[in-house]
Design a protein around this nucleic acid. Structure first.
Lengths: 144, 144
DNA sequence: TTTCATGCAAAAGTTTTGCAACCCC
DNA sequence: GGGGTTGCAAAACTTTTGCATGAAA
């Protein structure tokens, strides 16, 4: 995913009818331009540098709005949620040791075939999906 | 998934070196024989009928042991986790309206191909996976 | 007998909610 | 000006932890 400019992000928000505030723009910018699937606390830490008075409640509120607008996906985990701004068809490679999450496009043609099959069956009306593969990333698998 | 007898479950637990207690057996029986992906509270409610003094802490503790033994998978969601005892390769059809979760075997051959491709790349060592498709179940999609 | 599970209570941690002051449109 | 947003505080809720008692191997 390429890095989007502040202008790009502003447009995205305005297109979705989301009111623009400096805090909101900063939060959106951080979450959309972060490829590491940050937690709310991660985003908080990154945005706080520019808005020291920002609170976690605002982070959560904004993320919820971005999620409703389809700009970001919340990925609930045992400990806390991570946020993904990649809305293309992909799967997540989740390392159970270092907790890194990497998007993977390989296999997306299979994914779309699976979705089509289910959609065509008429038994389920698909909105979106989440596919996580858990295991060890390259770095961690080499460590022992 | 067929319903397993108490004896089947006992064997599964003993094979995994899990100490057998009446409470534990009841919890395992409920979660393994429930196809609806119950929450911890659901399991609590179902087991409490037989063990009124049981607490949620015991439920969580037991579920954690069953998960480590590979008998059950925890599926974290925004609100609370659901538990899945189907350890075959499948995907979950999650209704965003009624919150039902139904296992789906259709597409599992594609799933294994995706997994093989990733495994063969040598970039990630797979342990397990979770594939959720979100949308409306048949009943809910007909309601409006 | 020794080790581990249970029950109870309290704690931890994430996420949500309420509300007054403020800012965007 | 009006309605939505922010910041702050407190609440809600799931899940975890500590510990004494009791049960399994």
């Amino acid at each position: 995913m390429d890095v989007l400019t502040t202008l790009d992000i502003s447009k995205k928000l305005r297109d979705q009818g989301i009111r623009l505030t400096p805090q909101r723009l900063a939060i959106a910018e951080v979450v959309i331009n972060s490829a590491d699937h940050p937690t709310a606390r991660d985003i908080y830490a990154r945005v706080r540098e520019f808005f020291p008075y920002l609170t976690l409640a605002t982070i959560y509120s904004t993320l919820s709005i971005l999620e409703t607008a389809g700009l970001v996906a919340q990925l609930p985990f045992q400990k806390e949620s991570r946020y993904d701004s990649n809305n293309t068809l992909h799967l997540n490679l989740v390392c159970t040791k270092c907790e890194s999450i990497v998007d993977c496009d390989s296999g997306s043609s299979y994914l779309s075939r699976i979705k089509k099959k289910i959609q065509d069956s008429g038994l389920f009306q698909i909105k979106y999906q989440r596919f996580d593969i858990y295991g060890l990333c390259e770095t961690c698998s080499k460590q022992f």
